[in-house]
Design a protein around this nucleic acid. Structure first.
Length: 516
DNA sequence: CCCCCCCC
């Protein structure tokens, strides 16, 4: 039996959903602070459909200055603050409390592992991890990492101007708009990757940049530049980048047409500048789902369509690497009337809020990879993919302008403000914010075409899909889990329930488990 | 300095 009834509870009693942060360790290593509790997804352990999730919290404690959280204005505030107080109370024994304004809220992270099996529930070992990942400890220069990483988040590498070595760009000072791949978490962060080579282990992340000529180029941040800049760059904002190194693009691995790519190390200099309306927000070359068979597997395409089906997140065992993968399969449909499965892996699967998938949202997906399965074309998430949920209500407002570059500045400012607001609301992440078509660079005519088609014929096709296609089924939200577990505690040991769990928090002593 | 893979 699945617990799906949490949503019947009243809104008022619902605990707030904390921000799910995938870029946790890198942000932590870079000295990031969170004013609210943050859940960090670290790794996942296998358990078939009833998966285990391993999560971390930074245990951040909010400083009680209400003025510095202007973005909070929803009804959940009270509950959220209550929860923070509770966390603060519990954390009080073991943490090293930082006193200065800069250091507020920095606690040693804790990690726990939970298993919720059909027919039983358990909390085995509750292994605590009291240090950040060794890679990030190494990035910090070798000192013991977790304690005071928050000490000086602002005095960091970009202040140190190093002599450019040969091969470095003399001046790549053109303003570019950062389009970080695969927005995630509340600040649009992309994932940081770890890698190993002969020189040891390090980290990296990549961005796609676009300039006023609508030229896209791929840039990769390494090592300290990665840990520093990853939490400081936001998709959609405009920056100047300099002191990068140019490389010939590897056509095998770089999907952008640009013949060059950029490498950024610790000598990179980046400045955020004001919005520049001449820089498009995104380049989008729409492909109909029905045309996907014309693209060879491995192609990267942009599609515009409706989410008409969404399975829950599942765990599957990778054959090639022997590790557990998170997978979520959506079904897309557009006016070409060829339903296509769209599979998301890893964090991209996890971060999609199921609320965003209700009511067949129209989405613009940039940079999905074409694959073939069972003789049919399908789509798979790619690292640089960007999913934009389009607002239907606003779709017609942008008819007059089909190009982002042609949008009036005021409208773009509204976009930016809207984005900021939604970031602060932080239900999930950049990949799921609802935007107007102009934000995604999608032609308004294409959007209108889809909407018209959907209202005319979509429902009928949807009905046929429901006969065989995946119906929407979702894991419990964190709040729902909390309520469900309360019920569980009242039951006999050994009584049978099945759960799908996506998150939990453990206090610093490992004694108290918070279901959020 | 990586390498975008993963599964039905």
């Amino acid at each position: 039996m699945q617990l799906h009834n949490g949503q019947q509870q009243t809104e008022a009693s619902a605990p707030p959903s904390p921000v799910l942060s995938v870029g946790f360790w890198d942000a932590f290593a870079a000295g990031c602070m969170w004013s609210e509790p943050v859940l960090a997804a670290l790794s996942f352990s296998p358990l078939g459909k009833d998966h285990i999730l391993v999560l971390a919290t930074d245990g951040s404690i909010q400083v009680k200055t209400k003025e510095n959280t202007p973005s909070k204005k929803n009804a959940a505030d009270g509950a959220k603050e209550q929860q923070e107080e509770q966390q603060q109370h519990l954390a009080g024994g073991g943490g090293e409390q930082q006193q200065s304004e800069e250091n507020r809220g920095r606690w040693t992270p804790v990690v726990t592992e939970l298993q919720l099996l059909p027919g039983q529930w358990s909390r085995p070992r509750c292994q605590l991890v009291m240090q950040p990942h060794r890679l990030y400890a190494a990035e910090s220069g070798g000192e013991e990492a977790p304690k005071h990483r928050g000490n000086s988040p602002s005095k960091s590498t970009e202040e140190t101007k190093r002599t450019p070595s040969e091969g470095q760009l003399p001046t790549a000072a053109a303003a570019k708009r950062a389009k970080k791949n695969n927005g995630s978490s509340n600040e649009g962060r992309s994932e940081i990757k770890t890698f190993a080579n002969a020189k040891g282990e390090s980290i990296l992340f990549t961005v796609h940049l676009i300039d006023a000529q609508a030229t896209e180029i791929r840039a990769t941040f390494f090592g300290r530049a990665a840990s520093h800049w990853h939490p400081r760059l936001s998709v959609g904002k405009v920056y100047t980048f300099s002191k990068g190194t140019l490389q010939r693009a590897n056509r095998l691995h770089n999907s952008l047409p640009h013949e060059v790519q950029i490498k950024f190390d610790a000598s990179v200099e980046i400045d955020e500048v004001g919005d520049d309306p001449s820089i498009p927000l995104q380049k989008f070359e729409r492909v109909y789902l029905g045309d996907l068979p014309r693209f060879p597997p491995g192609s990267v395409v942009d599609v515009l369509g409706f989410v008409v089906g969404a399975k829950e997140v599942e765990t599957v065992l990778s054959r090639t690497k022997n590790e557990q993968l998170l997978r979520r399969e959506l079904t897309l449909l557009d006016a070409s009337e060829s339903p296509v499965f769209f599979t998301l892996f890893g964090a991209q699967a996890l971060q999609l809020p199921h609320s965003a998938l209700e009511d067949n949202p129209l989405v613009a997906i940039k940079g999905a990879k074409v694959q073939e399965y069972g003789g049919r074309s399908c789509l798979v998430s790619s690292a640089q993919m960007q999913i934009t949920f389009l607002q239907r209500a606003h779709a017609t407002e942008t008819n007059r302008s089909t190009r982002a570059a042609a949008a009036p500045a005021t409208q773009r400012q509204m976009q930016a403000e809207k984005e900021t607001t939604e970031e602060n609301m932080a239900h999930t992440g950049g990949s799921s914010r609802t935007q107007t078509p102009i934000f995604a660079g999608v032609a308004a005519a294409d959007v209108q075409g889809e909407l018209d088609w959907f209202s005319a014929k979509g429902a009928a096709i949807l009905n046929t899909l429901e006969d065989y296609g995946p119906k929407a089924a979702f894991p419990l939200t964190l709040g729902e889990v909390g309520r469900a577990v309360q019920h569980l505690h009242l039951e006999e040991v050994g009584s049978s329930r099945a759960f799908n769990v996506i998150g939990s928090l453990l206090d610093l002593q490992g004694a108290h488990l918070f279901w959020l």
